[in-house]
Design a protein around this nucleic acid. Sequence first.
DNA 1: TATGAATGAGAGTTCATTCAT
DNA 2: AATGAATGAACTCTCATTCAT
Lengths: 220, 220, 220, 220
Amino acid sequence: MTTSAHPRQLRADAARNRRALMDAAERLFAARGLCVTLDDIAAEAGVNVATAYRHFANKHELIAASLRQKIDQAVLIAEEAAGTEDPWEGLIQFLERTLALMTENRALHDVFLPGQGGDWLERLEERMQPVVSHLLLRAREAGEVRSELEPGDLGVALQMLATVGDVPVAEPPALLRRYLELLLAGMRPSDTPLPGSAPSPSEVLAAMPEARNLSPRLRR
Amino acid sequence: MTTSAHPRQLRADAARNRRALMDAAERLFAARGLCVTLDDIAAEAGVNVATAYRHFANKHELIAASLRQKIDQAVLIAEEAAGTEDPWEGLIQFLERTLALMTENRALHDVFLPGQGGDWLERLEERMQPVVSHLLLRAREAGEVRSELEPGDLGVALQMLATVGDVPVAEPPALLRRYLELLLAGMRPSDTPLPGSAPSPSEVLAAMPEARNLSPRLRR
Amino acid sequence: MTTSAHPRQLRADAARNRRALMDAAERLFAARGLCVTLDDIAAEAGVNVATAYRHFANKHELIAASLRQKIDQAVLIAEEAAGTEDPWEGLIQFLERTLALMTENRALHDVFLPGQGGDWLERLEERMQPVVSHLLLRAREAGEVRSELEPGDLGVALQMLATVGDVPVAEPPALLRRYLELLLAGMRPSDTPLPGSAPSPSEVLAAMPEARNLSPRLRR
Amino acid sequence: MTTSAHPRQLRADAARNRRALMDAAERLFAARGLCVTLDDIAAEAGVNVATAYRHFANKHELIAASLRQKIDQAVLIAEEAAGTEDPWEGLIQFLERTLALMTENRALHDVFLPGQGGDWLERLEERMQPVVSHLLLRAREAGEVRSELEPGDLGVALQMLATVGDVPVAEPPALLRRYLELLLAGMRPSDTPLPGSAPSPSEVLAAMPEARNLSPRLRR
DNA sequence: TATGAATGAGAGTTCATTCAT
DNA sequence: AATGAATGAACTCTCATTCAT
């Protein structure tokens, strides 16, 4: 029922609509969370709901698309951080900027994802994994962080820090900085190694979504 | 009519139903979050929805009652931890057990709180604050943790760790343990002090609620 | 299921409760119309809803009982008016005082009555009919009113005037007086007789109820 | 979204549905009063409730729309009556035809009107006032009615007569005619003037509504 | 292809009435 | 006889999704 095999190139107006929808979704998700109505998003984009359904099979898909976009930015951030001279600074920069990206959009860390959207998660993993691994290995080899620290740990750290963004204080960035510092301190080499092992990147990703904030309707 | 003003003694069957409702609510909240419908809760409890409304003025009240219960347990945990010999062990025990409590019930960390229910939050703060302060001061004075660590930091740490509970791994407790250890390492005395300052306990509490997972209907 | 054949004499406390319920009903109906809940009435009376159901088979019965009471007063008013010296003054007095009774209680003229309650209507008719007839005949014979005026016309006149009570003016009685006077002027002997004929008293009574203001629930 | 802001041209099927809804509403309001449920109206119209909500923001809006329609007809009637040769006949025609309109639809005289809908009431007054004034002044100047009769009196007269429509007789029009005649007789010039003064038109209008027959839910 | 319109399946809440103590 | 508690059937309104133009 969906446009079987979208041609690579959309008609100009269709592409414009798609973009308008994604932008609207990003704005509204960021402002009001995932519970905004598709009607609202369509209205914000200046198109009809049905048009939204021509571009996205359902609300999940639109959310996924909105996130995918953010994720592209995240990959970029990681790559830039990996290009830094100092391994330790690179790590910090990666965490800080990714965090900023996440907290800009509340949808990004209380998000969704059931079943089918999974593919983009995997593609994310493919792209993210090598650069984050590199970022971390560099730091490990330079003796800046504990040797048992794994890429998955960084993902969890980001998730945990994103949580801090919900605390209503006057200076959110300062608060984030405080707990980032706390975690960084914990990551430093130590005599007592961390127990257990990090989750795999795909497990971390599966957590991010975690279906929070979806209306019951979508849980089914 | 409301929860608070209930007569001292309920009739046997009413008490049974009330208990069944709270248990059902706890189970479903824990399993599916706060977005479960009252119909579902009532069904799970084996009573009619209207019965739920006899016991709780509205959905908020039921949620509040369910949480209040958990919170009593949390206070107890903190008190027991404060009774421990070793300050460091006490801190660990407090964090571990509170965390277990929180992860048992997903409602507890994506919870709510609109308007009038606010009173119990404050009562929680009143009861929790002194014992947690004591717990932390002891550890600080014993030189076990950084001197700039404040009670609010423990609250944030709990929130962050609760997030970890959402990561879908085979051994959730092991994962929690890993990141608890990471945070504990970060809390140890250090030459580079943490920047900024901790949020006040009431800010931390206000974050816990954060209206996540409430059905849009209840957001109003 | 109802107390089959209530003994003439109720137990003292039962009688007290019945009275309390009727009084409460009268107060609340007068103040808020027939849409008040039985729970509210019971609460106002200081008893439980179930007690209300012991005394009255359903809400209709309570309403009926509440009205019956008013109607007894109406009969009394008619009898006193019939005892007046001047026929014309008697008529006026009857209309004025009955009107006052009706407007005191908004339930009385936007009231109800489905099926079974009908018996009291008939008993009302039996008692009211002769005295009103007498009141009117006297006035007709004295040449004070048109000869084609019938008892039913007075009923209709009362209904119409009661409507006036709903107009929100500073001086409701003055307004009533104005239209009473208008109707009285119309009732005076005239060369052009009124067309048609008056409804029978029972038709007038059936109109009074007229099921206005009953919640859909009761319409069934 | 609301009625008022509808695009000039509805699509054919939407217009059909809108019409069906208004017709159904008119039928059911006329037959059972304003307490009918939207579900019932939608069912009668052969559409889903949600469709009703697409056309009318809520029950109030539907009621208002239904009445507005009737009111347009009422203004037309008044204008035609004002165009009559004979002042007295014009007055009679106005009352008779308006009455017929009102009794056709019981919603019209036990109607409502909360808050924002108020504008149409005022617009009604603006349109109705001048023509009714003219109608009455003509008759007064021609010596056909008492000189103290005011426009507001006609409004009250209509309300009172509409009440008569509730009396369940074989020939309702004949009954109405009888009491119309009674009131007309009372309006004729007389030596004893009417006491008090007429309510203002807006007071009369405020009475028409009077929130009768609205389901408790809507009373809020 | 994009739109306006329609829809079914709830969600939260209320109330007349009945059951069990 | 009176109560506390329970209930089922509504009622208003919403939303993700599909149909028809």
